[in-house]
Write a protein that binds this DNA or RNA. Structure first.
Lengths: 210, 210
DNA sequence: CGCCTCTTTGCCTCTGAGGCAAAATTCTTG
DNA sequence: CAAGAATTTTGCCTCAGAGGCAAAGAGGCG
C-alpha cells in the first residue's frame, strides 16, 4: 500500500484480501497462544464458538464491534489483529487543529537557546524556487505555513499545506519542500540540530536553507 | 450479539461505542483535512457519497474491507481511524514462535560483557515464594521459562507462561513474577542495567533477585 | 431569486453476520 | 481398539444492517 495511489479507486482488493486472510490466522494464533478453547474464548467475547471458528478459518468477516471485542479479549489492538505495519501518525497536522502537545513546544521561537538541540527559523520560499534536493539526515523537523501554499514531499507522499497547516516528520524520511502558490510561501521551520561534523550549520542562503 | 450476552464478559460495550463514535468523527476529520468532497472521497474508495456521509455521521458502521479502503485512501491505518492507543506489541511471545529479531539478541548469555548495558541470569523461583513486591524501574527486561509454569504480572495483566514461553517488557510497567507450578520455576532472565545510584546490583538473594 | 455545489435523508434490496444444533474430528482412557 | 469426552467444523436458518439510488435540504454567489 505504500504504492503511491494510482488514482484508480480499487487496486486494494488483493492487499485487502491478504490483510483479512491474515486476520483469520492471527485470531487463531492469539487464541491458541492463550491456551483457550473456542468455547471459552467465544464466551469471553460474547460470541458462539461456531462463529468464532468461522472467523478463524476465514469463512466470515467480523463486524467492527466483534473485532474490537476480540482485540480486547486477546489483549491486543485491532491494528495488531490486522497485522498492520506500525504506521507512524500522519505527519501533517492541519490548521487550527494543531496538537497543543506537539506544536506547543513552541518556546524555541526564533533562534532558540544556543545550547538547545532545536532551532526555529522563519523562512521565505520564493515563487520559482524548486527545492529539488531531497534531504535525508538524522533529527526531526517541524514546519508551519504562514502564507501561501507549500508543497511538502515526505517519502513518496506529497502534501499540500495551506496557511495554518503544519507538518512534523523525522528528518530521515526523504523530504523536500517547494512553493505551490505563485507568490511564494512564508513558513516557520523548526528542527533539531545534531551538530554536523563540520560544525557549521549552512543555513544562510538560498533553497538549501533547510 | 453486540448486546452483551451473559452479564459477565462484556464491559466493553461502552468503550466500544465510544471507539466507534470516534471513528465517525475521525473519518470526517481526515476527509476535510485532505480537502476532499464526499463525492470525491467516496469515489476514491469505491463507495457512494451518501454512504460515506452516513459513516461520518455515525449512522452506519463500515465493514472491514470498507474500513481498510478508507484507511488507505486517507493515508493512515485502521488503528489510526479507530484512534487506538498506540498499543505496544504484546509483551508475551509464546514458545517456539520466539521472534528471532528480538530473542535473537541472545549473545549476552550468562553475565554478559561487563561494559554492556544488559545482563542475563538463570533464575530459580522456589515453589512457595511470592514475589509480592511490584517493581518499577527504568530499562527493559526479557525472560524465558525453562521449566515449570510462571505467573507474570505486567501492569494489570496476568500472564501464565509455560516452558518455552518468553516475555519482553519495559521495566517501567509494574511487574512481578511468581511460580505457578508447585515444583518451582526455572527461567532465564535478561535485563538492561542502568547503573543504580548505589552502584551495586542486589542480585544475590531470594525473591528480590530481579 | 435562481443556480450551483455539497451534504443529508427516505427507501429499497440483498448480502452476509451470527446463532443453534448436529456432524465430524481429535484426544483420553479403560 | 472401542467408548466416551472434549473440541472443532458444517448445514441451515434468520434478520439486522451494509450500501446504493434518487430526491430533498443547505449554504454560497452573481
Amino acid at each position: 500500500m505504500t504504492t503511491s495511489s494510482t488514482g484508480t479507486p480499487a487496486d486494494g482488493d488483493q492487499s485487502d484480501d491478504q490483510e483479512v486472510a491474515g486476520l483469520a490466522a492471527r485470531l487463531r494464533e492469539h487464541r491458541l497462544s492463550s491456551r483457550l478453547t473456542l468455547e471459552v474464548a467465544a464466551g469471553r467475547v460474547g460470541l458462539s464458538p461456531a462463529y468464532l471458528s468461522r472467523l478463524e478459518t476465514g469463512r466470515r468477516q467480523p463486524s467492527l464491534p466483534v473485532l474490537l471485542g476480540l482485540a480486547r479479549a486477546y489483549g491486543t489492538s485491532v491494528s495488531g489483529l490486522l497485522g498492520e505495519a506500525m504506521v507512524e501518525p500522519d505527519p501533517v497536522v492541519r490548521g487550527g487543529a494543531i496538537d497543543p502537545g506537539r506544536a506547543g513546544g513552541w518556546g524555541y521561537r526564533r533562534a532558540g537557546a544556543p545550547g538547545r538541540a532545536m532551532q526555529a527559523l522563519r523562512v521565505q520560499v520564493p515563487p520559482g524556487v524548486q527545492d529539488s534536493v531531497v534531504r535525508v539526515h538524522p533529527g526531526e523537523e517541524w514546519l508551519y505555513v504562514l502564507r501561501g501554499e507549500l508543497r511538502v514531499t515526505l517519502g513518496d507522499r506529497v502534501h499540500l499545506l495551506a496557511p495554518g497547516d503544519s507538518a512534523h516528520y523525522d528528518s530521515l524520511t526523504p523530504h523536500c519542500i517547494a512553493a505551490e502558490s505563485g507568490s511564494g510561501v512564508e513558513l516557520l521551520f523548526v528542527h533539531t540540530l545534531l551538530q554536523s561534523p563540520g560544525g557549521e550549520l549552512c543555513l544562510g542562503g538560498g533553497p538549501a536553507a533547510h
